[in-house]
């Protein structure tokens, strides 16, 4: 199947900002330059990140990153291992709060709300910005309870029928309904890896988030399960903004509209996925996607 072709045909938000890091499309930025090149900003963004620094104790893991997350787009983040992709992703729903030594500076906004404002409660924030992890991590509960958990704790439903409806629609959206509808009360941990990951996606979308963060969601899956999840991501874009971290460049090419390249804590380049992969403007990006290092 060729998902890439399908993806690259999509109309792309074109308005670009901050393109002054280089003068011409032909001239590559020097490898020593740490200025973000490309188009980190979009019109009418869902999330806005400006001058974000993240420190683990004294160690700087994210260094002055500014980027937007658009509506109904899949933003892929690529880069060599340890460059800070997960760290940055976890800033977007404040999962880094759970790491004692972690400190986040800068401005991150969701629909104009500063999510690091002291008045902001992480509980509703994480309902709006859901997360799917690298290793499928369903709760050791039934399939039904896994999906129902979010709506239950957030009080999104008033009775059992509504809950059952949400569970069904979420599982359907996650493409899992037909596979599990007869075993809803069996443990979620008894599913295959790919099914588990889709269960986790269903669990995340059951609370109707605005943004879904995915941290290498397919790295623990076999190619067929990966294809299914990728297909699912493409469908989910209709409703949600998706930020996906991946170490597989092909995957980024297949599922995303925009790609951001991170290098040692710096955001090197952002741009439409097809352009990044065909005509990178930064030497480091080119080196990475051509496989000179990574």
């Amino acid at each position: 199947m060729d998902l890439t072709a399908d993806m690259t045909n999509q109309p792309f938000p074109t308005q670009l900002f901050g393109d002054d890091a280089i003068d011409t499309a032909e001239e590559k930025a020097k490898p020593s330059s740490r200025q973000t090149v490309g188009d980190p900003f979009v019109e009418n963004p869902r999330m806005i990140c400006r001058d974000v620094y993240v420190y683990y104790a004294e160690k700087c893991a994210i260094n002055n990153v500014s980027i937007d997350v658009g509506r109904n787009e899949v933003l892929a983040m690529i880069g060599p291992s340890g460059c800070g992709k997960s760290t940055f992703l976890r800033c977007l729903n404040r999962m880094n709060d759970t790491v004692g030594t972690c400190r986040v500076e800068g401005d991150i906004r969701l629909d104009d709300m500063n999510i690091y404002d002291p008045s902001v409660d992480v509980v509703p924030l994480r309902a709006s910005v859901g997360m799917v992890f690298q290793k499928p991590n369903p709760f050791p509960k039934s399939i039904f309870d896994n999906v129902a958990y979010g709506p239950k704790i957030h009080g999104l439903v008033s009775n059992k029928t509504e809950l059952a409806e949400i569970v069904e629609t979420s599982l359907t959206k996650a493409g899992l309904w037909n596979e599990v509808k007869d075993r809803l009360h069996e443990p979620g941990t008894g599913l295959s890896g790919g099914q588990q990951q889709r269960l986790c996606i269903a669990r995340a979308i059951a609370v109707s988030p605005e943004v879904i963060l995915m941290d290498e969601p397919c790295s623990a899956l076999d190619p067929i399960a990966t294809a299914k999840v990728e297909e699912l991501i493409a469908e989910l874009r209709e409703q949600f903004s998706i930020v996906i971290v991946t170490h597989a460049m092909q995957q980024a090419a297949r599922v995303s509209q925009r790609t951001a390249y991170f290098h040692l804590g710096d955001l090197i380049e952002v741009g439409p996925t097809d352009r990044i992969f065909t005509n990178p403007r930064h030497q480091l990006t080119e080196d990475y996607i051509t496989g000179r290092f990574g």
């Binding site: 999962m95 709760f139 979010g150 957030h154 669990r203």
Partner: peptide, 23 residues
Amino acid sequence: VPPSIREAALGIGASKIQMVTHH
């Protein structure tokens, strides 16, 4: 208890005490 369970609960928006008591 594996940290992945904690992350799963927090990631869906459970408060800390909910994470502890439910999972």
